[in-house]
């Protein structure tokens, strides 16, 4: 962090520094990925050029990138809020998945808005127990939130096969949500859902709230030094619970938005680990609003471009996975050096 963060020019330079810090892991990953590409007899520059084109080269590709970034905006933001309060919440995946199932099921009967609210509530439910355990008994949240992901995975699987399975569908899935309850598309026919707007609004609210509200201040202080915060009179337990519940609500809302905007039902493979990529997004973005957006767009671009790049080259998806994985690794290493 910069030494004196108050004056205006410094503010800009801070944005620059945080931007720079987010870019460094990415550059290192490009170099390592380039070495892998060279070693396997491919031209790295040509491939990176292809990736850029497939990420941003046209309305349809930008829509695809933003669409892939949308769930990561939700999970990245949900993770960042908890991290900001010093709670290492790795249970965003579970909140996302249960939010998705709940949203898809409620929207089926009660429409779009009810689906979104129910999804957010489901996310709150997932994060509530680990939050209380952490605040009241100081139970390690990494263990409880990680395990809650498995509980949710089992629970949703059982709920779908036992009660919610769509008739006449061969794989495990809930019925298709009626079109009236879908989140509207922004750029038809490219399938970019308005969920991205919800996510961006949330990120902006977060940026303002964390800087300018009392609770935001308490959250940051608790994250920096819980014992000092307690001595200052901040009710640390309450702050931890609030941050976890907000984190859960955003995760759940993200799941509902994904169900109502993209998949239009809950189905096998609903989340390929959005919650876990969200951790990387938050780490890469240093838990800042701008950083979360950059991180989500970066991983979204890698996901969408990595897939369609296969249409134009023989380079396997695994190389793109190497790139994403390397970015994640270096994002974590930077954080560790700072603290």
């Amino acid at each position: 962090m910069s030494v004196c963060p108050r004056s205006n020019p410094d503010k800009y330079s801070r944005v620059l520094t945080s931007g720079f810090r987010a870019v460094v892991p990415f550059v290192i990953a490009l170099v390592i990925g380039g070495a892998v590409l060279l070693a396997t007899g491919h031209n790295p520059l040509a491939f990176y050029q292809l990736l850029v084109r497939e990420s941003f080269g046209g309305t349809d590709r930008i829509a695809a990138t933003l669409s892939a970034a949308t769930p990561l905006l939700f999970t990245g933001l949900a993770t960042a809020i908890a991290f900001r309060a010093g709670v290492f919440n790795v249970g965003v995946e579970g909140g996302f998945v249960l939010g998705g199932l709940t949203g898809a099921t409620v929207a089926l009967h009660a429409g779009l808005l009810a689906g979104c609210v129910a999804g957010a509530l489901a996310g709150v439910l997932v994060s509530a127990l680990p939050a209380w355990l952490k605040a009241r008994w100081n139970v390690d949240e990494v263990v409880t939130t990680l395990m809650s992901n498995f509980v949710v995975a089992g629970l949703t699987g059982w709920l779908v096969t036992a009660f919610l399975q769509a008739k006449g569908v061969a794989n495990s899935a809930t019925p298709l949500i009626p079109r009236s309850a879908w989140l509207p598309d922004l750029l038809p026919p490219y399938g970019l859902t308005s969920g991205v707007l919800i996510a961006l609004v949330l990120v902006m609210l977060y940026a303002v709230w964390i800087k300018h509200s009392v609770l935001g201040y308490e959250l940051r202080q608790t994250g920096l030094n819980p014992r000092f915060s307690a001595a200052q009179g901040i009710r640390v337990g309450r702050v931890i619970i609030v941050s976890m519940l907000i984190s859960g609500a955003i995760a759940g809302l993200g799941g509902a938005a994904h169900a109502l905007g993209v998949v239009h039902r809950f189905v096998d493979g609903f989340s390929p680990g959005y919650g876990f990529t969200g951790i990387a997004v938050a780490l890469l973005g240093r838990n800042s609003a701008v950083g979360v957006v950059l991180g989500a767009v970066l991983f979204g671009a890698l996901a969408s471009a990595g897939t369609t790049a296969q249409l134009f080259s023989d380079i396997p998806l695994d190389i793109v996975d190497v790139l994403s994985g390397t970015v994640m690794v270096f994002a974590v290493i930077r954080l560790w050096r700072q603290r």
Binding site: E54, D60, R61, A63, A64, S67, A68, P71, P189, Y190, G191, H258, V262, V263, V267, D268, G269, F270, P272, A303, S304, G306, T307, T308, Q310, L311, F312, D314, P316, L317, D321
Partner: peptide
């Protein structure tokens, strides 16, 4: 022939198939 794998084949379906539709296949 070209095959396409995706780690998120459910959600990327729409964009992936549209891209395939405009890519000379």
């Amino acid at each position: 022939g070209q095959h396409i794998e995706s780690s998120d084949v459910v959600a990327q379906g729409e964009q992936l198939l549209r891209r395939a539709g405009t890519s000379g296949y």
